[in-house]
């Protein structure tokens, strides 16, 4: 296993991302780079015998136009306990970095090793670091994704020519939707407000079992047709859609129109990010406030809070943020029901 992962990624030739292997070998620091990966894998080799899957994921942090940054999925292999492995990279947008970044879906009990590569101009001052800091799931002090200035241990960053591998443990009790974001670019707070954020969905063990046995091989949940990951920034919604039939992720950009087929269930994963507070509404719909039996029709959210709910798509509406500044800045979009 160690050899197979010598460059932080499975090396079988048929892999669509074989260019990664090449770029890895051509890097002058390639040896140090692989050693880091190897060391980490050895360190964790004792704990990988968990009941769940082991995910090997490679993500690039890249520069986008307009002084923004984003994460790009480079590869995602799922290794199941029986030894079989599935390449699910084609579910993601791989052609470009996206905002939000790839939505990573794990099951309760799974472990993910995520290698992050620093892929932008290393000469920009104060941008030598970039990281992944994740919420909710378990990780030890190697994988906090912070700088030594904060954790008093080490800089947990991808830097130019040297990747960093984070291990996320979706242990029992961590089911839910969680944000991940940079914590290290420019300073110890990171550049989460410049586009370096995404979502992690940990399916509960029950939901994962249900999904596996469902007739339509649902990729996120057997109970919903579409998942919308919705980041509420200070000036726009940033949306991503996941089709449950195919598992395919589509980055929708800012304040996009959403479409859903009539009478199907769709799930919203709202995460706020920035400085402002928000008030989310989907007029003429109501839903259950998680953890309660309360039916609500609006939700106040502060930065990095999450709110997940499912509605049955019965009529067209409009999602909107009715906080004063958000309303003026046009934070809204259509929710269109198709037949």
């Amino acid at each position: 296993m160690e050899l197979e992962f010598g460059c932080g990624f499975p090396t079988h030739d048929s892999h669509p991302l074989h260019h990664l292997k090449r770029s890895c070998k051509t890097l002058s620091t390639g040896i140090a780079w692989s050693m880091a990966t190897l060391a980490l894998l050895l360190l964790f080799s004792g704990t990988t015998a968990a009941a769940g899957n082991l995910h090997n994921i490679v993500i690039y942090a890249e520069r986008l136009p307009g002084n923004l940054y984003g994460y790009r999925m480079a590869g995602h292999i799922v290794r199941q306990p029986d030894g079989t492995q599935i390449d699910i990279t084609n579910r993601y947008v791989t052609s470009t970095a996206t905002i939000p970044g790839p939505t990573i879906i794990l099951d309760e009990g799974d472990i993910a090793d995520i290698e992050l590569l620093h892929q932008f101009d290393p000469h920009t001052p104060f941008q030598e670091h970039v990281s992944l800091h994740v919420h909710g799931v378990h990780y030890d002090r190697e994988s906090d994704g912070t700088l030594k200035y904060i954790n008093l241990y080490k800089d947990e960053s991808a830097v130019p020519h040297l990747s960093y591998v984070y291990r996320w443990n979706a242990a029992p009790g961590t089911a839910g939707t969680w944000p991940y974001h940079d914590h290290n670019m420019e300073n110890h707070n990171g550049a989460e407000d410049k586009g370096l954020f995404g979502a992690l969905i940990v399916r509960s063990a029950a939901e994962a079992r249900q999904a596996k046995t469902s007739s339509n091989r649902a990729h996120v949940s057997p109970n919903v047709a579409k998942d919308y990951v919705f980041y509420l920034g200070d000036d726009a919604f940033w949306a991503m859609e996941i089709d449950n039939a195919t598992g395919k992720q589509t980055a929708l950009g800012t304040n996009p129109p959403l479409t859903a087929q009539r009478n199907t269930n769709v799930r919203f994963h709202l995460i706020a990010l920035g400085t402002n507070f928000h008030q989310f509404e989907l007029p003429k719909y109501q839903w259950i406030d998680p953890g309660t039996r309360n039916t609500i029709n609006r939700k106040v959210l502060g930065p990095l809070e999450k709110h997940v709910f499912t509605v049955k798509a019965t009529h067209s509406s409009r999602y909107q943020d009715t906080a004063f500044a958000s309303r003026l800045l046009g934070m809204r979009g259509d929710f269109i029901i198709t037949r």
């Binding site: 909710g136 009790g173 961590t174 507070f277 998680p290 953890g291 106040v300 502060g302 809070e305 999450k306």
Partner: peptide, 30 residues
């Protein structure tokens, strides 16, 4: 207002049911 976040820990949102609690690691103080 603020939102409070603690790294590497998670807890039950107050007001959640004990049976199906809402687990969080960030909370608004608005």
């Amino acid at each position: 207002g603020h939102t409070f976040h603690l790294h590497a820990h998670r807890w039950i949102e107050p007001g959640s049911s004990q049976k199906t609690p809402h687990i969080i690691d960030t909370h608004i103080l608005d």
